[in-house]
């Protein structure tokens, strides 16, 4: 016992280092791409208020009120459009302002000035003028944390064209205007400039929203599949206002998939 104590005293710096690294790395791994819990919600609330204040100072000379009105009007019109089209999952839309956004790391994120009191929940999708931007992963009372398409830790379900194959979209870091669609069947017909749309399968957005377009580059062969480079539609460096899409009937669908998984052998 005494030897063990001596050993701990002798190597206490290394021990403290390992403990701190353990805490930091567990925190790091556990917080990328998923909901992050109460502590982050508090931090988000505090940080959101500060960012909002900074953002207000920056905006003093801009046509801010007009932007807000247009944003609200866009959200209403979009909801009516989807309702008129009779989409399978209707969504409600809230306008929100991006008060913080990063685009130069591989785990980029955004903070929005709307939270649970405005009906925002984790899993809601983000749009910029009908273009897919990302999804909400955490929401405090007044603010929400969202991960954009340009976050390399998450994958997105997309469709090539309106009736093409469904594949997965991954942003690999670096250029914020480019991403890659993986697992596209070799037989799928497409050409540069074709639209890449949301599949709607993940439940964050309605199907058929613009994600990007096929880039004018040769796809990479990967066995039976192609990896196709695309140009993203949203301009992540200039995003200021977004619409938050909250699917209606989400809980009913989740309930169905839950009961299905419980009954399956």
């Amino acid at each position: 016992m005494r030897n063990l104590w001596n050993l701990l005293v002798q190597y206490h710096i290394a021990l403290v280092f390992v403990i701190f690294q353990g805490i930091a790395l567990t925190w790091f791994v556990g917080s990328h791409g998923y909901s992050r819990g109460k502590w982050v919600q508090r931090s988000l609330e505090w940080q959101g208020k500060w960012d909002q204040r900074i953002s207000q100072w920056n905006r003093l000379t801009e046509l801010d009120d007009l932007n807000r009105e247009l944003l609200a009007e866009n959200a209403t019109l979009r909801a009516e459009l989807h309702s008129a089209r009779g989409d399978a999952i209707h969504s409600t839309y809230h306008g929100a302002e991006v008060i913080r956004s990063t685009w130069n790391s591989t785990s980029n994120q955004m903070v929005l000035n709307k939270g649970t009191t405005h009906g925002v929940k984790p899993g809601n999708g983000l749009l910029q003028n009908n273009r897919v931007v990302g999804r909400v992963v955490e929401a405090s009372e007044n603010y929400a944390l969202a991960l954009p398409l340009i976050n390399s830790s998450i994958e997105w379900s997309v469709r090539i064209g309106s009736s093409g194959p469904v594949a997965r979209l991954v942003w690999e870091g670096g250029d914020v205007t480019r991403a890659t669609v993986y697992d596209v069947p070799r037989s799928a017909p497409f050409s540069p400039g074709d639209s890449v749309l949301s599949s709607g399968f993940q439940g964050y957005f309605p199907a058929g929203l613009l994600v990007g377009s096929i880039a004018d580059e040769a796809p990479e062969f990967d066995g039976q599949f192609l990896n196709v480079p695309i140009t993203l539609a949203a301009d992540f460096r200039a995003i200021r206002y977004v619409q938050i899409a909250a699917p209606i009937g989400e809980s009913e669908i989740n309930g169905l998939s839950h009961s299905d998984s419980q009954q399956s052998p």
Partner: peptide, 17 residues
């Protein structure tokens, strides 16, 4: 810094090293 930037451990790990 991690708490403020919502980066989750990245800065703590690097600063400790």
């Amino acid at each position: 810094v991690d708490t403020a930037t919502l980066e989750g451990g990245l800065f703590m790990s690097s600063a400790v090293l």
